[in-house]
Design a protein around this nucleic acid. Structure first.
Lengths: 100, 100
DNA sequence: AACACATATGAATTACACTTCATATGAATT
DNA sequence: AATTCATATGAAGTGTAATTCATATGTGTT
């Protein structure tokens, strides 16, 4: 497997807003405004973030009237978050601080 | 679970050199010079990369004479790479291009 | 203890992705 | 077709992590 694939994927996830969007979408699908309001983040920021997540097929989108409903592709990201949970609780005392 | 944990983890992996080191260590444990030579990457660069990977317990290290042998903590990273392989082949035609 | 080999570290620079903000597009309603 | 609501997009500015390079530290050998 091409190492660039991993790089693209991880780079896409290496951002707090995108993580928060993913966690937010875990409950249920939402339109852009809802995400923007719930996370208290400017709309264009959310749109940019969703755009790159969609690009890696981490989220998908469907139209509903003039809204765009985004929903999580849970196949990959949920088990991945679970792996990190387990990793952190096993190897990092449950919380990663970062170190640089 | 704290969203910062995910951010720290993904940020640490969002780098081509680190990915290559991880892939390189998948076969077997190696010292810094070996990695540096095999990947044709300057030693200090490798050391910096290893340092932050170790910080997240993605790699571990043991001393052997004056060498430091790094080895992969396969518990988390291997299944994670497998998830991405599967994701890419299912949703991205096996190769991620990136999109920004 | 001097030396050589192996690796780590610090700090300045560089590179790249995120943010910002103005504006464009698109869909529905009147 | 004009307006409004909803979202996307472009491009300049910003921020943060990677790179670079000089040097320090550590380990074994003579």
């Amino acid at each position: 497997m091409n190492s660039n694939t991993y790089h693209v994927f991880f780079t896409n996830l290496a951002n707090p807003l995108k993580i928060n969007i993913i966690l937010n979408l875990r409950e249920k699908e939402k339109n852009v405004s809802d995400i923007s309001n719930e996370l208290r983040v400017e709309q264009s920021k959310v749109s940019h973030a969703l755009s790159s997540l969609k690009c890696c097929n981490i989220v998908e989108v469907k139209q509903k009237g003039k809204q765009r409903i985004y929903f999580l592709n849970k196949k990959t990201i949920v088990p991945m978050l679970n792996l990190i949970d387990k990793h952190a609780s096993t190897f990092c005392g449950s919380k990663c601080r970062g170190c640089r």
